[in-house]
Simulated assay, not measured.
Amino acid sequence: MSASLIRRACAAALILTSTLAPAIAVAAAPQSASPEPESRRAVQARLLGEKIVPYKLDFQGTTVGGLSGIDRDRCTGEYVFISDDRSFLQPARFYTAKLDVDAGGVHSVDFTGTHPFLQPDGSVYPSPALGDGKAIDPEEIRVDPLDCDYWWGQEGDRPAVAGPPVIQPSIEISDPDGTHRGSLRLPENYLITAERGPRRNQAVEALTFGARGRVVTSAIEGPLLQDGPVPDLTHGALVRVTQQSRGGRVLGQFAYPIEKIFAESDPNSPWGPDTGVPSLLAFPDDPNRYLVLERTWVAGSGYKIRLYDATTRGATDVRAMDSLAGQRVVPMRKKLVADFHTLGLSTVDNTEGMTWGPVLPSGERTLVLVSDDNFDKEAVTQIVALAVR
């Protein structure tokens, strides 16, 4: 059977399963807090293994790197990676790959294909150097559980100086060959304006499907301008997590608390600390529960990567709040699952993407993560596999 026929058959089966499944309600208003089930209190993670992809690996005439998102394609069994190359090296694109991951670790990473993302008119996305306002900053990718199309988030651009046009963040939908199929309507407070909306390079980096594909959840990487300052050595911050229908209707919006900065920045560095939420992943059996990745970089101290188990249950729905600054809100509750410095990795780098992998004979679920090397020879493209119980 051809790959396209396999994909269509798989998608049809998934749609039928979703149609027959009972509806899963997603609360759009604050819920009363209740004791957490034992299953939520017991989440643990351990390292299975890792694999480093060669720096600037050439594949089909493209430079592999900047891998900032990963998901597993249920229709093919392969994995899909998004590159955050903004068409500087080659047109903005994604990759497919076969990963050999099991209880023994990550045995191989074999890239099988690559395609550029196409604009609605069929052309590739241009480099920001053109200054025409059509460039993108791809960061996250998810395979639709219903039809195996690709949904991908891009941060847009809030220019650092006057002159270049603002490029709004968006969530786009493409065929597996890169053909553009549509966009998800984002909440109004995700839009960039002069004094409101996401900060530069802190917009839509996190995207996931929940409730058997009927709920799309996204997160802003850092606090909106109107929601208060970014984290520092003494204070964390709140970032917005939004649940939407596939058609774009907002079902709920919640405040997720990110940690304060873990160390002082090197005073000789021109770069300040950078922290936020680059990825989140819905639990298969609970539309209100997520694994949340927090990534922090501090000059002189490097990266700290932490994985949390978080829930919207009992959290305040903040969609109608123009600003979170000074407001009394109940944020999402979270529990630490793993601090990457305690896992035994060869290095802790710029981990930005994660997806569920196969279930292990032990009953644990694999979690596969990827780091973004930013096309920097001092960084790495690291594929990590964890076992999550």
Rank of each mutant, 00 (worst) to 15 (best):
L207Y: 10
K304I: 02
T275N: 14
S323Y: 10
I261D: 00
Q168T: 04
F375R: 09
G248R: 13
F283E: 11
C10N: 07
G300P: 02
V26M: 03
G122Y: 12
T193G: 09
T179G: 12
A263T: 04
A97W: 06
P361M: 08
T311D: 02
V80A: 12
D227V: 09
L251P: 05
I261M: 05
D102C: 10
V80E: 00
A103L: 02
P267W: 11
G228I: 11
A203K: 15
V80F: 06
A92E: 04
P120V: 12
L130H: 03
D309R: 07
L20W: 02
D349K: 07
E352A: 12
L191A: 15
R93A: 14
E259V: 07
A42C: 12
L336W: 04
K377H: 10
I192V: 14
R200A: 11
K134A: 14
P270S: 05
E221D: 03
N201G: 02
G178I: 13
A12I: 00
T76W: 15
R249E: 15
H115G: 00
I173F: 01
P128M: 14
Q168R: 04
H115F: 15
T76D: 03
T355L: 07
P145Q: 02
W297R: 09
R72I: 06
S87R: 09
V215H: 04
G163Q: 10
D71Q: 10
P331E: 01
